[in-house]
Structures are given as C-alpha cells and as structure tokens.
Simulated scan of single mutants.
Amino acid sequence: MPISVVIADDQEMVRRGFRMILEATDGIDVLADVADGEAALAAARTHHPDVMLLDIRMPEMDGLEVNRRLRQDTEQQNHEQTTRVVIVTTFHDDEYVQTALHDGVSGFLLKDASPALLVEAVKAAAEGDSLISPAITVRLLQDMATRPGKRRPPTPEEPLTPREIEVTCRVAKGLTNAEIAQDLYLSLSTVKAHLTHIQTKLAARNRVEIASWAWETGLCAE
C-alpha cells in the first residue's frame, strides 16, 4: 500500500513543488493539496491520509490548530491517531515550536528542504517515527530551552542509562536512526530498541518529544 499524503500550504509554489517531489517517489500517493487550514481539516477527514504536511501559518486555521483538531477526532473515537503530521516551518516560526512539540507532531521541515529530506520525513512519519530537519534542530530547540518562563521538564521515573543518553543527545541534534547507528557503532535494531525504552521512560510520544526533553533539561548542552 502506498503512503497517502495531503499537503496544506497557502503558497501555491510550495504545494506544487512538494507534490512533484512526492509523486515522483515510488510508494507515495498525494491525495490532495489545499491552501488553508479549514480545507486541510476537511481533506484529512475525507481522505484519512497517512501523513499531512502542514504549514504553520495559513488562512482560516493554522497548522497547529489543524493538528489539535485531528487529535481530538481520534480521541473522541477512542482510536490511536493514524494521520501523522509533519509541520513545515521557517526560522521565523520559532514562537510556535514549543506548542507543536507538545501537541505530538511527527516532525519539522524547512520549506526549502531537499527532496530527499522531504521524502525521508514523510516515510518516517508513516512508520510512526519522526524527523526534525537538522538545519533547524539546534536553533529551535535550544532557543526553546533557554527561553524565560519555560516549563519544568518531567523527571523520568527511571533514569536513562549512559547509552540511552548518548542516543537521546543524537536525536536532539536531528540525527536519523541510521546516522545514530553509524555514529555509535550499533545495529539499526539496537537503536530502535533504545528509542523505545527512552520513549517509555520519558512518556514521550515520538522522537520530537525526546529532543524537546533533552534541550529543556540541558542534558546535551556542549
């Protein structure tokens, strides 16, 4: 079954570019592209895509509100959310990042992301994983961690092991599972097992929340 995608962005050139890239990729099917938040929510409810690419700032309803509405839909139905959301952002959207992280989005991309990174983000989200563009990871999350009045990060019920801390810090820097495996000389399956244990200890829904926690605690500050 191909990965189904809905694209929502108020810039036609962005939508067209994303559609061309994804439709040229085997195993990905773009069901719709829309220009505002209301249309995005309607498309999600009609098509039930595996992945939605959502701009943050859109007419009618922003991407963060669309994500919240989708979560409410699945909670009311007592189902696990099946449509994963990847936020498309720019450096000017820093103030929205903390909200998005804690609303369980499956990743962040810059609008000028490479075709390969766009495809990788869609595939990761469809698999229940997540990807943060390395170009924005450190800037956005570090800014969030040092912002006055930031929330107190939760303390895990069970401490992370030294190896889990190494994996966590690499997630916080935007490395993919394959890159973490190469960096730490681990198998891909071992990295995934560590991530599962880390998510359980932190009560995190995905690697985006793992990265958020790492920066908020200062665990990985160099």
Rank of each mutant, 00 (worst) to 15 (best):
89 T>S: 15
53 L>H: 04
79 H>R: 15
38 E>L: 12
74 T>R: 13
77 Q>N: 10
198 I>G: 00
19 R>W: 06
71 R>K: 12
201 K>T: 06
125 A>N: 08
29 D>W: 08
124 A>H: 07
110 L>R: 08
39 A>P: 08
52 M>L: 13
16 R>D: 10
113 A>T: 01
130 S>K: 01
115 P>E: 06
161 T>R: 09
136 I>Q: 07
181 A>H: 00
180 I>E: 00
212 S>V: 01
55 D>G: 07
157 E>S: 15
175 L>M: 13
166 E>W: 06
125 A>T: 06
1 M>V: 12
70 L>I: 09
43 A>C: 07
12 E>I: 14
89 T>H: 10
95 E>W: 02
129 D>R: 15
211 A>P: 01
146 T>F: 08
184 L>C: 03
37 G>V: 01
60 E>C: 04
9 D>N: 11
26 D>V: 09
148 P>Q: 07
111 K>M: 03
217 T>R: 08
4 S>L: 09
85 V>H: 00
112 D>G: 07
133 S>K: 03
8 A>P: 06
177 N>D: 13
57 R>V: 14
131 L>E: 07
94 D>V: 14
45 R>K: 13
94 D>G: 00
148 P>R: 05
146 T>Y: 10
39 A>Y: 08
10 D>G: 01
134 P>M: 10
60 E>V: 04
60 E>P: 00
84 R>G: 05
153 P>Q: 02
175 L>N: 09
221 A>Q: 15
193 A>M: 12
187 S>K: 14
171 V>W: 04
143 D>F: 03
93 D>A: 11
161 T>M: 06
11 Q>S: 08
134 P>K: 09
18 F>T: 07
116 A>T: 13
169 C>D: 03
138 V>T: 03
173 K>L: 12
193 A>L: 14
181 A>V: 01
158 E>G: 00
38 E>M: 10
79 H>T: 12
3 I>M: 08
24 A>Y: 05
63 G>A: 01
180 I>M: 00
13 M>Q: 13
209 E>A: 12
183 D>C: 01
140 L>M: 15
91 F>W: 04
121 A>D: 07
2 P>A: 14
49 P>F: 06
72 Q>A: 15
208 V>A: 08
108 F>M: 07
142 Q>E: 06
98 Q>Y: 02
151 R>W: 00
